[in-house]
Nucleic acid binder design. Structure first.
Lengths: 204, 204
DNA sequence: CTGCCTACAATCATGCATGTATGTATGTTT
DNA sequence: AAACATACATACATGCATGATTGTAGGCAG
């Protein structure tokens, strides 16, 4: 009726609360990691209480899994899609590198990803497994792109695609995050590093 | 008297147990991080009990600080010294990159460094500060080497030395760790990445 | 308007890890 | 060898975060 509709359906309330909690959890995870993440803090940061949190998520683990899923989705939509849409494999990889640098500026999703990976590698934890799966899909993509690029000659020979892909992603993680916000150098240095790994000369 | 002297002086006992506990703590830190590190586990892993641990270290924090110090010392002795001994700045940086890859094969010190850095960045914790200082010294070294290399023409112009150094170290951390043990590709990929960051063409 | 259902808050109980205090054995000194 | 100190083990207390339970206010169907 009136200008802005103030009536909120229950589903709406639930969705907004959930989003706020997820965002707060993502910030918390990227800052403190999983173990040190305190749910009281998360809830307060989002403007709610732990009661609300436990109403929307089964437990701490479930919350973290939801964050992981959210990170995967946004990264897929904002970086992966654009990269895979490129015509040749090399351009795809470089687009991914630059896109990731930009992604790091906007979200703390990348930091979440890195933090959790570091924290859970070598463990056997559901959250770590979820991260691992997301990451493995990425590594597969990259390894295939490297293979394709070497086949069509745009990427020179080098270490096994699997390792090259692993190193490539390691670059995206750490360089992209280390430099996040130092525009425009973040993109430039990330691309330089990516080219270095791939053995492709820099553009002049 | 007899063949092998089985008599152990107190200082000896102390030193060996301390070393064992430090090693176990380093493994634990590189695997679980600081927050999730359980001292009972550390002590058992070293073949002792928490009693011994609290006898040699004031508390958990003190133990972690000792590990950080140990990492700094070994890295300095095994990587930094050899790198700085090189004649020209570019060789120093590349030596550092390759040396670090080899360092990652032997110790888990690099993993400790990375894990703690990720865990404590943005916090205000004594362990984080200690890590930060160690790391800052490194970053200074690298930034100066980059500046020197650009002055003598061996390294082309690029982003500010400070950022280039940060990216360079990010490479060492993640690539070196990600590939640790995948000899000889770890060294090759680490060097490739380092050259990429510095903008130096790969050797053929 | 009445009654139920859902979103959320507030309180309580459990578990677990740190740190402390005490006990024992092994080395060291005189 | 007796007195002492140090390395280490065992047992206890404290604190804190999770997760469960209970309580309340607001939407939504009859």
């Amino acid at each position: 009726m009136s200008g802005t509709d103030t009536r909120r359906t229950q589903a709406d309330r639930r969705a907004t609360t959930r989003a706020a909690l997820l965002a707060a959890a993502a910030r918390g995870l990227s800052t403190y990691g999983y173990a040190s993440l305190v749910l009281e803090q998360v809830a307060r940061d989002a403007g709610y209480t732990r009661g609300a949190l436990y109403h929307l998520f089964a437990n701490k683990e479930d919350l973290a899994l939801a964050v992981v899923e959210w990170v995967g989705e946004t990264w897929d939509a904002e970086v992966r899609q654009a990269a895979l849409a490129q015509k040749d494999p090399l351009t795809s990889l470089l687009t991914m590198a630059k896109g990731h640098a930009l992604y790091c500026r906007r979200h703390d999703g990348a930091k979440v990803m890195m933090t959790l990976r570091v924290e859970f590698t070598g463990q056997d934890h559901p959250v770590g497994r979820a991260m691992g799966e997301t990451y493995d899909r990425l590594e597969n993509d990259c390894a295939e792109l490297v293979t394709a690029g070497r086949r069509d000659g745009s990427i020179p020979a080098g270490p096994p695609p699997r390792l090259t892909a692993a190193a490539f992603l390691a670059i995206l993680e750490s360089v992209g995050i280390e430099l996040a916000g130092n525009a425009p150098h973040d993109v430039e240095l990330t691309e330089r590093a990516a080219r270095g790994i791939l053995g492709v000369a820099a553009r002049d």
